[in-house]
């Protein structure tokens, strides 16, 4: 009966993942390996960026026209924020579908999201990356790593650490069913600062982590160390988010750019 419960939990989490996230690894890999009839538009310089803005991301950038005269770095930063806000919204809906999450103390739900969403976001972002670039605009565009690196500082420092993480993370060859449980484990984490009912969350965390371990053994029988490797990735993601939050604070201080209110809430008093 216990094994049946664990399989049910794994299935519920996987279904919630497929339902709530617009992009997933299977979709992204189909596009990145050229198996679609419509290959993504490649952004590799200022000219192709402008072309992409006129077509693919017109809604994001051009809505108020407020950004059209701003420099490319600021426009890209704004696009990143829009994507982040969408993913945070998807992650919130995903979290609510994880059995037990919605019955947690509401303030604890907020704390789990505040600290978990960026770790989850960077873990999932790896699915849309290869060594040369990143899928954007729901997979209709591909922005090259070299172009992102060529932006002026501090914007050029934004994505390179995520590519470096993604290359190592992608080498683990997780599929969407593994990622669903991994993302759930990131969110249901008992040691986030300020949690009120830690024991309640630890019970949830324990069952998700156990299900993740069993699922990995079944899904990757040849990689017996995959589970401990993934636990290490949790620590790496925490470090990645800490550095990202510092960079965003620096950009906020030194650049004339606005930060979306939802992201401000998340970053404020984070670490």
């Amino acid at each position: 009966p216990q094994l049946a419960d664990q399989k049910t939990l794994a299935r519920q989490i996987y279904e919630a993942y497929l339902k709530n996230f617009n992009m997933n690894k299977a979709k992204a890999r189909t596009i990145l390996t050229g198996k679609t009839s419509n290959p993504p538009f490649v952004v590799h310089d200022m000219e192709t960026l402008q072309l992409a803005e006129q077509t693919l991301v017109a809604k994001m950038v051009g809505s108020a026209g407020a950004l059209k005269d701003r420099e490319a770095e600021v426009r890209i930063f704004h696009c990143c924020q829009c994507t982040s806000v969408e993913t945070v919204t998807e992650l919130t809906e995903f979290a609510k579908s994880v059995p037990g999450f919605s019955s947690l103390d509401l303030n604890d739900q907020v704390t789990l999201l505040k600290y978990g969403v960026y770790e989850a976001l960077f873990a999932m972002l790896a699915s849309s990356m290869n060594k040369d670039g990143l899928l954007v605009a729901y997979g209709s565009g591909f922005i090259t790593r070299e172009f992102l690196k060529s932006l002026r500082r501090p914007f050029s420092d934004m994505m390179e650490p995520k590519f470096q993480f993604a290359m190592k993370f992608n080498a683990l060859e997780l599929d969407d069913s593994d990622l669903a449980l991994f993302v759930a484990a990131i969110i249901c984490c008992g040691d986030r600062p300020g949690l009120v009912n830690v024991s309640h969350i630890e019970v949830m965390q324990e069952s998700i982590v156990r299900v993740l371990q069993l699922h990995l053994l079944a899904n990757h029988p040849d990689d017996t160390f995959l589970f401990p490797k993934l636990l290490q990735k949790l620590a790496d993601l925490r470090q990645l988010v800490t550095e990202h939050a510092q960079l965003v604070q620096e950009i906020k201080k030194t650049e004339d750019t606005s930060l979306h209110p939802l992201l401000q809430e998340i970053y404020r008093d984070m670490y």
Partner: peptide, 20 residues
């Protein structure tokens, strides 16, 4: 609670869109 108004709103109401 005031510090995380939008997160609270997202958690309590799935239909409420977040303005971009």
């Amino acid at each position: 609670k005031e510090k995380h108004k939008i997160l609270h709103r997202l958690l309590q109401n799935s239909t409420s869109p977040v303005e971009l």
